[in-house]
Design a protein around this nucleic acid. Structure first.
Lengths: 116, 116
DNA sequence: AGGATAGTTAAGCGTGTACTAAACAAATTA
DNA sequence: TAATTTGTTTAGTACACGCTTAACTATCCT
């Protein structure tokens, strides 16, 4: 017995999103795309890996919902899907909220002390 | 020849942060911790994996800077390091800013059209 | 002291991941 | 039509990852 664990099985998407962002090459691709739509080979340009590898990363990014692509003629244009980043951003900000709510109560106590 | 690729080699931390958050078990641990400090075994409680596995995840979370731990007597207490989440949050919001700056220009044009 | 509790470390196992090379398909250009 | 450009698919490889078991250490309790 071995392999990945499943946990709750509700949020399939958030799992893919964070996993996709966990790779430096994919983050570099997202960074490039956030400056505007690009073709696959333009994306591959600075990346020091084969086009095939880029295409594979692209599939993962698309499956996660972080990226949208469209093919016209022989060139595929890749762009950011804003909603994808939001999923990750939301998760983080939820944790922070939860954290700060607790910390906030302590903060009040410290402030009281401060004022004497 | 194979294996991971290195890219820019500046941001060592952000790589660890996103990688750490890419695992559902580790996110579950972070969620638990964001509600307050916990011991290792409390953390392990609902997780359906061995304590040993939890300790391994914990090391990754600590190395990423997302989590801080302290041992007192025989119990190790684990809590969130707010700055860790900020690193991820910042990266995302930077991408979004870059994205929205572009999209904003288009947005203006659309708004103009809208007003006739 | 003896036993229980809390955590740690190391070795090993199966799967997933990131990559490559190579062969392919389909538009575009000469 | 032939060559080029742009992308896609498949098979294979090496290493990373998540997990377990087992043996161990250290603290706390009786």
């Amino acid at each position: 017995m071995s392999g990945r664990q499943r946990i709750a099985t509700k949020q399939v998407k958030i799992d893919r999103v964070f996993h996709a962002l966990g790779d430096p090459t994919r983050r570099a691709m997202v960074e490039r795309m956030s400056q505007g739509p690009v073709s696959v080979s333009t994306l591959a340009g600075p990346l020091a890996i084969t086009l095939a590898a880029v295409v594979q990363h692209l599939k993962i990014l698309e499956a996660s919902g972080l990226v949208r692509t469209e093919k016209l003629g022989r060139v595929r244009t890749c762009s950011i899907e804003a909603a994808g980043l939001s999923v990750a951003e939301q998760w983080i900000s939820d944790r922070r909220a939860s954290w700060e709510r607790r910390f906030g109560r302590l903060g009040v106590l410290l402030a009281e002390e401060d004022r004497g």
